[in-house]
């Protein structure tokens, strides 16, 4: 598979060491948030596509990502980059837009809002997600919550979400979330479907 041209994804197609910089999800990756060292410089990098409405994404973040963060991210051995990828329930799409609009203003607020979506998944639907997001941002951050919500349907935010959807599709993620792409020294090792365990990620990334 040529760098950047083909999928190297989670649907059964073999990964063959494509470089992160040439991978569909590596393009402009610096514009999305990450935990730990620079994803392009880290010994190991996990790029995660998350849907805020997906229950297994919530389990993955609350379990595996939290464990990896304390064991490897803080020591600089692992970088975890996350991109909102709304492909599951309908409310995930406005939530992904709200995450992007929040990220444009404050990365810490992005992580907090993502945690909030995962923690309260059962309370959201397409009718209330933006109202509840505005209320939560107003109560828990210093951001202008109304401005964030006004921005949700802007061309810039929409194009960011569409860019991730297109990159995920090209990478072979399809409609499966969480979809994680494991890179060692900048080269793709494999991709992982679902809320895989910490041991699975450790083994795949030689941690």
């Amino acid at each position: 598979m040529g760098g950047g041209s083909g999928s190297s994804g989670s649907s059964g197609e073999s990964s063959d060491g494509v470089a992160l910089a040439d991978h569909p999800l590596g393009e402009n990756l610096a514009e999305w948030p990450h935990l730990g060292p620079d994803p392009f410089e880290a010994p190991a990098t996990l790029v995660v596509l998350d849907d805020p409405s997906c229950s297994r994404c919530a389990a993955f973040h609350q379990g595996t990502v939290a464990e990896l963060e304390s064991q490897y991210v803080e020591s600089g051995d692992l970088s975890i980059a996350v991109r909102p990828y709304p492909v599951v329930y309908a409310w995930g799409e406005p939530a992904a837009h709200a995450l992007e609009a929040t990220l444009a203003r404050d990365e810490a607020a992005f992580w907090a809002l993502l945690d909030h979506y995962f923690a309260e998944q059962g309370s959201f639907n397409t009718d209330n997600v933006l109202d509840q997001t505005e209320t939560w941002l107003g109560d828990n951050t210093d951001l202008d919550a109304a401005a964030v919500i006004d921005d949700v349907d802007s061309e810039a935010i929409t194009s960011r979400v569409e860019a991730t959807l297109a990159a995920g599709e090209e990478a072979g993620a399809g409609n499966i979330t969480p979809a994680s792409f494991a890179f060692v020294d900048g080269a793709l090792q494999t991709s992982l479907n679902g809320s895989v365990s910490t041991s699975t990620v450790e083994t795949a990334l030689n941690l």
Binding site: S10, G12, E13, S14, Q189, S191, L192, N193, T200, T203
Partner: peptide, 25 residues
């Protein structure tokens, strides 16, 4: 997890113990 199976459990160069870990997990 067909890609993981193909890349690291069936293919790749991991030691047998690591492949078994990936299966069991």
């Amino acid at each position: 997890n067909l890609t993981l199976t193909s890349d690291l459990i069936v293919g790749g160069s991991l030691p047998l113990a690591d492949r078994l870990v990936l299966v069991v997990e």
